[in-house]
Amino acid sequence: MNEVQSGQSGPKRNPIRLALGGVILVGVAAILYVIASASFKPSGPADLTEFKKGTLEKLDVPSTPRPAPYTAFTSLDGKSATLADFKGRVVVMNLWATWCAPCRAEMPTLAKLQAVYATQPVTVLPISVDRDGDLNLVNEEMAANPPLKTYRDPSYKLSFALDPKAGGFPTTVIYDRQGRERARMTGPADWSSPEARGLVEKLLAEK
């Protein structure tokens, strides 16, 4: 007489189905890890080299943002100011002089750039290195290019405080909203061009 088994065996498990389930779980976990890592990873400075074209072909884009100098300059009414006063805004600082023909040629394009971003945190900052005796010429140039305002550094202190120092005039330095130098242009450019506006837009988009 054969021995009767009292226990009943459970349903058989499909090994292929188990393997597929494991693969799916691992895949979901990997995707969630990537999403979480991207969410908590601090975003670095945007790459601005894509704007090195057109009249900005010679744009200098440092691999590491440079700190802004603390050197003071003055407004038209003689009040002292520094670049730190404009922190929180994208700043397009332009060092220029009335005796510099390329400086005066590009000034209307700087005025157009400021006008486009009049309601946004963007400041175009033309700083003249003209001597005191030529202040009337500086004011005439600014009056011809609204909404730009007169700022001055007749002692060239700011030009020499830059690292590296200004290589001539005009020199235009672009600072992000944290007050760091992100790009620099030695020589004239069309600051109303698509590449110039694209550069400003990219910095505005940064947090």
Rank of each mutant, 00 (worst) to 15 (best):
T71C: 02
V61E: 00
A101K: 13
E3C: 08
A72P: 09
L18M: 14
C100W: 11
L56V: 02
D130T: 10
D132C: 01
L56Y: 02
L162C: 00
L204H: 06
L203C: 02
K58L: 04
D77V: 07
C103E: 03
R152Q: 15
P194H: 07
P11Y: 14
L76S: 15
G179V: 10
A84S: 12
S80G: 13
K87C: 01
V116I: 07
K112H: 13
A29G: 14
R66T: 06
P164D: 07
L48N: 04
P126K: 13
R131Y: 12
V200R: 08
K52Y: 08
Y175E: 02
K41N: 11
D163T: 15
M1L: 09
Y33N: 08
Y33P: 04
P102G: 06
G167L: 03
L95G: 05
D60N: 07
P11C: 03
R152H: 06
G168Y: 07
I127Q: 03
P164E: 11
Q120H: 06
P102K: 12
L137D: 14
G44Q: 05
R184V: 01
A196W: 13
K41L: 10
G133N: 15
T74F: 11
T109C: 11
T64H: 12
K207L: 08
K202T: 08
N14G: 11
A97F: 03
L125Q: 02
V23W: 03
A19V: 00
P188L: 00
